[in-house]
Amino acid sequence: MVVPAALRELHDRTRPVTLAREHTLPVVDALGSLFVDGALTRGSAVGVSGVGATSLGLALAAGASRSGSWVAVVGLADLGLGAAFEAGISLERLALVEAPSPGRWAEVVAALVDGVDVVIVDGRAPLTPSEGRRLAARVRERGSVLIPVTQGSQPTRRRSGAWSVDLTLEVRSGRWEGLGQGHGHLRGRAVRAESAGRGRASRMRSCELWLPSADGSTTARVEPAPDATVVMLRPGRGVPSDGA
């Protein structure tokens, strides 16, 4: 259906001001405190790195995906789709794109930001700095959000390669809970996530998270661990006792 131009004009005129939330994409509640506006700013790039970068990248996209946005993932061939679903990403609005050959990354990502709200890319993609800047301008113009995810265990500042990012999120001090010596199962990871960026976001913000929590989603963490009892869903055999 085409909205007649006159009707659209009327809508624009009767709308009092542009609301700040029209320029943002929602994030899950637990991550809100990492952002100045409490949400992802449209037209920005958010780099994610550190232990658990993949989980954090998925968690960032989850809020927007749940509210109707499409999410595209470029590269990251090993992405676990089960984890994506548990993080809160709608599978019917998720598309996975093979890593393009070197030299075609900019073209492919530019095509995607035209129509997809959240584009998760491999932070280690071979991209020249000028391509990175041009893409950042394209993202700003189109109002999408670009999330370069740099997987790797050694967190360092500005690890997002040639991608030009406005905000960097990092995961520190991941600690897995739920495993014993031969019993239990992974129930969650307690992490501390930090964000720092340019302009208004230059002050460092941090929050304590379960990334992921026991059901795979991302939740805020309040000490002590909310559920300290170990439930054995299916018994592992463990180490045989001497008498066995």
């Binding site: 996975l96 035209d114 129509g115």
Partner: peptide, 22 residues
Amino acid sequence: ERAARALARVQGLLGVNAVTVP
């Protein structure tokens, strides 16, 4: 529809099977 168009464009660039959905 906007997303489908963007993905179709990527299919044009990388080949039809480069884009997958879960």
